[in-house]
Design a protein around this nucleic acid. Structure first.
Length: 490
RNA sequence: GCCUGGGUAGCUUAGCGGUAAAGCGCGUCCUUGGUAAGGACGAGAGCCCGGGUUCAAAUCCCGGCCUAGGCUCCA
């Protein structure tokens, strides 16, 4: 029963450290402390979770039961905390995803393998289009690669030796294949397929590439942690003298994306992990280049020791979700190893062969995780440009159905629906609100006679006698400017 | 993968040894309603899967799968 305490005492004895012991009534234990003098000093208490935890945080150790709780100075602070906690749960993307028919993850199709339903894919499609526009402007060329490769490729890239535990690998006849956990080897193979001059670089490849990683079962969670996900991937093949310029340009793209979604972000430099390929010199040089960019632009950043990819150091961006947790997403990774393994080269000004530098980058990170974050960030109330259903027309009675369809037709460049069910206006408004539709158009006899509409937004503001054209013009602007809230009535 | 809960109608849940329930949604009908739930009737359930205990299992036991919260790992 006191095995753990004895283990700790033995260690303290070895290190000649002072031992502290705390008592509370009849109960006592080793503790670094400090403790309150009496439990009476603790304010309102609420127990929150009960969970297993590895002894001293090591997977190899046995598990112990840990009880989580919180305490506040007075009752109202505790209530406040619990309310905010409940508020956060309301934003849960799994709950909203279900309510809005965005996606499902089903037993029959397997764990961590999300299915996107039409409304969810509509949002994803907008996200894809947005980043594709950015890529076009920045000189990227789109490529496409299969989901499966022979493991020869994974041996060559180093994934087999460093990443096989997380890969789906299977035999087909006498050959061994693996689902791709990353898109880079495929892109490297494309680059390798022809010869390049120093004048051609940088070469920038982009792909919305689906990848597969066999995460531990207990880690899977909604869209935030899955087995199959899509990266808005980009791989650059550049000359060493182009590093700083290219990294800077990518960082501008990332910041552009994050600001479009009004996201607070932080960045961090992740350095060499234990399991990695390449020489010390290569790693030091790579880390130095990234630091230079960060220093040069006077950006604040953390350093995450040993958190880099096995092929190179990276700059990771993190943003906050509704619960205030930070998620990884956008990333810029330098890679001095893949070019070596694939024997990549270009002919320099000196007519000699040189090795290009590779950059891996993603603006969203994975669509899945970014989508999840957006759902919670907006609580499902997407900006107009993202909303699965942008406008809903509500006829006051069946007599106005014809006019309702006529009006909807005027908005056929938007995602518009007519609520043609037999029910009261109140019910239709309620339903549109529950479905988080940004705008409702209400048409009755008055509107039909005047040839105009009434407009209502999801803030419950409304306006009568609106000209169809005026509202349509506004919608176009609001959508194209990617405004974050419906503002026709604001 | 490891601990502790949970899987019942399309959704949210009640029932916890003895004829499967409710609300929402859906269908039909009545109603034609002016800014956040009008009414009636109805359809809809292999009670996660496989074993076991019992006269009898959604309910108890064992195993598996999925899921939630943690732990450990990651986009």
């Amino acid at each position: 029963m006191y095995k753990r305490q004895l283990e700790l005492l033995a260690e303290f004895a070895d290190e000649n450290e002072q031992v502290t012991f705390y008592k509370q009534g009849e109960w006592g234990d080793l503790c670094a402390g400090p403790h309150v003098d009496s439990t009476g000093e603790i304010g309102p208490v609420k127990l929150l979770e009960i969970a297993g935890a590895y002894w001293r945080g090591d997977e190899e150790n046995p598990m112990q039961t840990r009880i989580y709780g919180t305490a506040f100075e007075d009752e109202s602070d505790l209530e406040n905390f619990l309310e905010r906690k409940q508020e956060a749960e309301k934003r849960d993307h799994r709950r909203i995803g279900n309510e809005m028919n965005l996606f499902s993850i089903q037993d029959v199709t397997g764990p961590g393998l999300p299915l996107y339903h039409p409304p969810g894919k509509t949002v994803l499609k907008e996200l894809e289009d947005f980043v594709e526009d950015l890529n076009q402007d920045a000189g990227y060329d789109y490529v496409e690669t299969p989901h499966v490769f022979k493991t020869d490729l994974w041996h060559r890239s180093g994934h087999y030796e460093n990443y096989a535990d997380d890969m789906f690998i299977f035999d087909v006849g006498d050959d061994e294949f693996g689902l791709k956990p990353m898109n880079c080897p495929g892109h490297a193979a494309i680059f390798q397929d022809q010869s390049w001059s120093y004048r051609d670089l940088p070469i920038r490849y982009a792909e919305n590439g689906k990848v597969y990683r066999k995460e531990q079962r207990g880690e899977l969670s909604g869209l935030s942690r899955v087995w199959a996900f899509t990266i808005d991937d980009g791989h650059l093949f550049i000359r060493p003298d182009q590093i700083e310029q290219e990294v800077e340009e990518i960082m501008d793209m990332i910041i552009d994306v994050l600001e479009t979604f009004d996201l607070e972000y932080e960045m961090a430099l992740a350095t060499r992990p234990e399991k990695s390929v390449g020489s010390d010199e290569i790693w030091e040089h790579a880390e130095e280049q990234l630091e230079n960019v960060l220093e040069k632009r006077n950006l604040e950043y953390d350093i995450e020791e040993g958190d880099g990819a096995f092929y190179g150091p990276k700059i990771d961006f993190a943003f906050e979700d509704a619960i205030g947790r930070a998620w990884d997403g956008p990333t810029v990774q330098l890679d001095f190893n893949m070019p070596d393994r694939f024997d990549l080269s270009y002919v320099g000004e000196d007519n000699e062969e040189h090795e290009p530098v590779m950059i891996h980058r993603a603006l969203y990170g994975s669509y899945e995780r970014f989508f999840m974050m957006l759902i919670e960030h907006y609580e499902g109330k997407f900006p107009l440009w993202l909303a699965p259903e942008q406008v809903r027309v509500l006829p006051i009675s069946d007599a106005n159905l014809g006019y309702a369809y006529q009006v909807a037709n005027e908005f056929d460049d938007f995602r518009v629906e007519v609520d043609d069910r037999d029910s009261t206006l109140e019910r239709k408004i309620r339903a549109a609100h529950d479905d988080r539709v940004p705008y409702q158009i209400i048409v009755g006899d008055n509107e039909e006679e005047d040839g105009n509409i009434s407009v209502r937004d999801r803030f419950e503001d409304q306006e009568y006698d609106v000209e169809i054209e005026d509202f349509h013009d506004h919608l176009v602007t609001e959508r194209d400017e990617q405004r974050s809230e419906p503002d026709f009535l604001q």
